[in-house]
């Protein structure tokens, strides 16, 4: 951990600006993300989270400012950036007409991996999709699509992974599955930039959290640091009621494997 933290950051973003016609979406965004950490970009809808991710993944050019990914400039070394990243967008970008296995094998071949078939089978097993691997993705549930989507992003072991609202629209069970796979990724040293509008998601997963609001980062720190921004906690005694999520997960009997 110490050797990683002295290394250069996996992501460096400085004074990033972007406008769409009249709308000034990003007004000078700055943040660094340490290698091997999970960084959550928190913000409401339309705050510009996706715009940041699209700029970092070379899909969009910033109007001003600079950004590097794995040490490469997104503007001048975009090909090297694309070698180092993988993007899981807001909507599961999977090929519905192909089977799950074919989707994975296609990604493996496009990333010039030698044993595409074996990589596909391994990932299917790892994401509990082995039984569905031969079925067309059009028949998959939302959670299965998302898992396949993330599995496709892991091919070639890119050092940096962008996950744009990875659990939006998922049921609580699938959400926990996605969370555990994100934790596993970071455990292996992959840097994860995660955008989310769910506060508990950032709280659960992230090493550091940045809040993007009206085009700038208004807070950036660990969960403990962010909590210190508020006045000291006033201690109250409240009867602990199970939340509906606790009830739901207890009744359907899931979550135990993932948490």
């Amino acid at each position: 951990m110490t050797s990683q933290s002295i290394a250069a950051p996996a992501l460096q973003v400085q004074a990033l600006e972007k406008s769409f016609q009249e709308v000034h979406v990003l007004r000078g965004v700055d943040f660094d993300v340490a290698r091997g950490s999970i960084f959550a970009l928190l913000g409401s809808n339309g705050a510009g989270k996706t715009t940041v991710v699209r700029i970092l993944s070379t899909l969009l050019k910033a109007d001003a400012g600079m950004a590097t990914v794995a040490g490469f400039d997104v503007l001048t070394q975009s090909a090297s950036v694309r070698e180092s990243i993988s993007l899981t967008g807001q909507f599961a970008a999977v090929d519905e007409i192909l089977t799950g296995r074919e989707n994975l094998a296609l990604m493996a071949r496009l990333r010039h991996q030698k044993v595409a078939g074996r990589i596909a089978d391994d990932l299917l097993a790892r994401f509990q999709l082995s039984d569905a691997g031969g079925r067309r993705v059009a028949t998959y549930s939302g959670g299965m699509r998302r898992r396949l989507d993330i599995a496709m992003s892991l091919i070639g072991n890119p050092p940096v992974i962008f996950l744009d609202e990875p659990t939006t629209g998922l049921d609580p069970q699938s959400r926990l599955e996605v969370w555990s796979c994100i934790r596993e990724l970071a455990g292996q040293g992959t840097t994860v930039l995660l955008t989310t509008q769910y506060l508990d998601e950032a709280e659960q997963l992230a090493d550091r959290i940045a809040i993007l609001h009206e085009g700038t980062i208004i807070a950036n720190g660990t969960l403990a640091e962010l909590k210190r921004l508020l006045p000291p906690v006033e201690i109250q005694y409240v009867e602990k009621q199970p939340s509906l999520e606790d009830v739901f997960l207890a009744v359907v009997g899931a979550g135990n494997s993932s948490t």
Partner: peptide, 13 residues
């Protein structure tokens, strides 16, 4: 529309 276009564009291809 499905986003797979952007996925390809963010890949080293």
């Amino acid at each position: 529309k499905s986003g797979i276009f952007e996925r390809f564009q963010s890949m080293p291809i």
